[in-house]
């Protein structure tokens, strides 16, 4: 398996407080991996470092053979990492279609003057973006809502839109931050199937943060467990379930 992402001794310190330390993970191309841990363990901080929102205090992050430490979030996106957010961050006053169209940003080639005077590549590219965006919407059963304002969407549809939007950036690696948060068991079940399906369909590698154990154990091939900013265990769902360290830190706590 080709290695897609590797982090080496990545740490993040906020004003003397170590949020994440010695964060070492490896993702092979095509893997579906979970990142779990109690609240405040540093999972989202890890995502923020992987996507350039935070610059790690120390350590190296190699993505697809390239060091991405120091890159800005939009450059990381261009390099091929897309994400969703724990607290959904849609462009809420814009339409569903516009939300997806924005994700094509790094591939737009026409310039300012071409846009203003509607010449050159403008129409060709805009039509392509429109078609591709609508295709993505239909995959996520959002085509009927294309002209709806994003904030008016029901919760589940907002989560799907966030994933659709992330996929529109054409990522190699997709980071999902608690995709099942706030979903009922039925919706979670559908989400699991969808995650499996998009991995196959888009040839993705997926790393997901999740609290819903059924979901994580159900679809992840490998799991990292984070506690107090440090990885305390790594393994298959079965190994993790039986790891005494994990049971003490995490599963035990939740019963």
């Amino acid at each position: 398996m080709r290695e897609l992402l590797k982090t080496e001794n990545v740490s993040m310190v906020f004003g003397g407080l170590k949020a994440v330390s010695d964060f070492n993970i490896k993702l092979g191309a095509g893997e579906l991996v979970g990142l779990i841990g109690p609240n405040g363990a540093g999972k989202t901080t890890a995502f923020n470092m992987l996507t350039g929102v935070y610059q790690p205090t120390t350590g190296a992050i190699t993505f697809d053979g390239e060091n991405i430490v120091g890159k800005k979030p939009y450059q990381v996106t261009k390099a091929g990492i897309a994400r969703t957010f724990q607290n959904i961050r849609l462009f809420s006053e814009l339409t569903v279609l516009e939300n997806v169209k924005i994700a094509f940003q790094s591939r737009v080639k026409y310039g300012l003057l071409e846009a203003v005077f509607r010449v050159g590549r403008y129409f060709k590219e805009e039509n392509a973006i429109e078609a591709e965006a609508r295709r993505l919407l239909s995959i996520f059963h959002l085509e009927g809502l294309a002209d709806e304002t994003a904030k008016n969407l029901p919760y589940g549809a907002q989560r799907r839109l966030e994933i659709a939007r992330a996929l529109a950036t054409k990522p190699k690696l997709l980071l999902l931050d608690e995709p099942a948060a706030g979903m009922n068991p039925q919706e979670t079940q559908e989400l699991m199937e969808m995650i499996r399906w998009i991995r196959k369909e888009f040839g993705l590698t997926i790393l997901l943060i999740e609290h819903d154990m059924a979901l994580v154990m159900g679809i992840c091939e490998r799991i990292y467990v984070l506690e107090y900013g440090e990885i305390i265990a790594e393994g298959t769902p079965k190994e993790i379930r039986e790891n005494p360290e994990v049971i003490r830190a995490y599963l035990g706590g939740e019963g």
Partner: peptide, 20 residues
């Protein structure tokens, strides 16, 4: 697309950045 980028910034700067 340029204008859409501006709208995205208005709506949510962090999401805009992560959309490229």
């Amino acid at each position: 697309a340029h204008g859409r980028a501006c709208l995205a910034i208005r709506e949510n700067e962090i999401a805009a950045e992560s959309m490229g």
